[in-house]
Design a protein around this nucleic acid. Structure first.
Lengths: 136, 136
DNA sequence: ATAAACGTTGACGTTAACGTAAACTTTATT
DNA sequence: AATAAAGTTTACGTTAACGTCAACGTTTAT
């Protein structure tokens, strides 16, 4: 198994070393292994998880706190569907409801962005009409 | 013409009075009229502009600085298309390019959100399959 | 084995985007 | 006319999300 030190991970993910430590500190990413001394050693899976966090952060536009909640939700579901974890059906429906809520939120955002984009496109069209063409 | 004081505008827009003054201070919204004393008096158009700012902020997820740039761009275009302002064609194409860039950015974001949403939907489907139905 | 390079943990600094409180003025109400 | 209610500016406070620096320990390279 190959291990990566923090600087490699930083360059790979585009985060800074500080941010990696910070995200670990607030529980956004799980603490990686350590060398005999104290060096952080990240596995490929760790790095994948970090990429997921980054993706979710960029896409959702949440605060890190909200992001934590969301990732915790996903983790719960992942563990459950891998049957590593049994969840009482009452909580399960609650979790499903939570997830549906997030999806609806996303859909709303997407729709708003789409209509905003459409407006901008109209603006652009009008603008192009006012630009004189090269042919005379 | 009807004028609105800051508190009404705050309740109407959902911003706080502080935020209204702050946005004015940093030039995100234009300074409204004033009463003979010093009270801010907003017109309906002012309020509309504020709503636009809020929409752009929510949809674009920009910092207020970036938002300023963007709104300035839109203003330039608006003034131009209303022919209140003549712009040399060189700058015009530059402006158009800027706008196209923003649109592409939006499109990218939308696509990412869409595929993220799709993932969540799959997750939800799998989750529902593990929930026992009411019939036995 | 010793220096250079890299890592670690504090801890204080910074920036954006407001919140909050004070001291004062203007408008509305009785 | 006087008091309350709402507004004004000024200025300091706060929170999130890191940046930066110091003092020190660990690996790697020579």
């Amino acid at each position: 198994m190959k291990w990566y030190k923090i600087d490699e991970v930083a360059r790979e993910t585009g985060l800074t070393k500080r941010t990696l430590r910070f995200y670990e500190e607030i529980g956004l990413i799980k603490p990686p292994e350590r060398s005999e001394g104290k060096f952080r050693l990240y596995s490929e899976e760790d790095i994948n998880q970090i990429h997921n966090v980054i993706l979710a952060r960029e896409v959702l536009g949440f605060s890190l706190q909200e992001l934590q909640q969301f990732l915790a939700l996903k983790e719960t579901i992942r563990k459950h569907t891998e049957s590593k974890d049994e969840i009482p059906p009452g909580q399960l429906t609650e979790i499903a409801r939570s997830l549906e809520e997030q999806i609806l939120m996303l859909e709303k955002k997407i729709n708003r962005m789409q209509s905003f984009k459409n407006e901008l496109n109209e603006l652009l069209t009008h603008l192009h009409e006012t630009i004189p063409t090269k042919e005379e």
